[in-house]
Design a protein around this nucleic acid. Structure first.
Lengths: 143, 143
DNA sequence: CGGCATCCACACAGATACTG
DNA sequence: CAGTATCTGTGTGGATGCCG
């Protein structure tokens, strides 16, 4: 297994880019938690443990195109490495793998869910703000 | 202004990709807030209002390569449109633009900061978990 | 100074095909 | 089922030039 071609699947992503600089370690964790799929994974797992495909379906219910298999794998591996998610692989055929939150993960997930709930509560205000913004903008385009 | 060539700068990004599907609107806002630069912008603005370049420098102190001018512009526009950030452009030469949080933005920012603080507190545990994970992984690679 | 616009490079997300 | 390997779009961001 050569690591020459670093196609995302190969190595668990660090969250920094390219030939990039150093970055304080906790910002990395923050980025894992707040990543597009990390947020949804944490919120779903707060409800109950999930199997891989089950989790994938649950996330697809949030709308949009849902997670690709690859990104879910990657997200779970990253969160597992950070000690937020517990992976329980049962050695049976067909394979069965259950994902759940660790205590650490539960703490993070609760914060994230709080953010999500607050956001949902305030959606009306956001919509209103957008209308104002868009109206103002298209008005200033009349030139 | 033709909208044919949609180079990211042109139109304020919606948060959905490509030819993508519909997505529940509040998930979009959540993605704006939890976006790589959105998180840092909100946290910094919680401290005090900032001017554009000032904010850019403040964010660069988090390590890594910092925000590009383009991404900061884009992030601020998105957050402004969502009604989280207030933009105060003074019509002077040279231009002076101050960014601050709205009440709505402050609420979101406090949640985000909470998440960041918790994460920072738990870093030791995360580091520990990573060591275990990496050790286990390199052990299983001995084949 | 605080943007906007365009070109370019490349890392990353996603689709697809394959394996235990 | 739960991944792994790989290829291809596309978003991200740097560099550059222009404007109010």
């Amino acid at each position: 297994m050569t690591v020459s071609t670093v196609d995302t699947m190969t190595a668990v992503p660090t969250g920094k880019y390219g030939t990039g600089e150093e970055m304080c370690p906790y910002r990395l964790v923050l980025e894992h938690v707040t990543s597009r799929w990390g947020v949804l994974v944490l919120i779903e797992l707060l409800e109950r443990p999930y199997r891989f495909s089950e989790l994938r379906r649950a996330i697809s219910r949030w709308g949009g195109r849902g997670v690709s298999e690859k990104m879910l794998t990657q997200t779970l591996q990253t969160l597992e490495r950070d000690g937020l998610v517990h992976r329980d692989a049962k050695p049976v055929i067909p394979p069965r793998v259950d994902y759940s939150l660790t205590d650490l993960g539960r703490e993070a997930a609760e914060q994230v869910r709080g953010l999500a709930l607050r956001t949902e509560e305030r959606m009306a205000e956001v919509q209103k703000a957008r209308e104002v913004y868009d109206a103002r903008k298209s008005a200033s385009e009349q030139r």
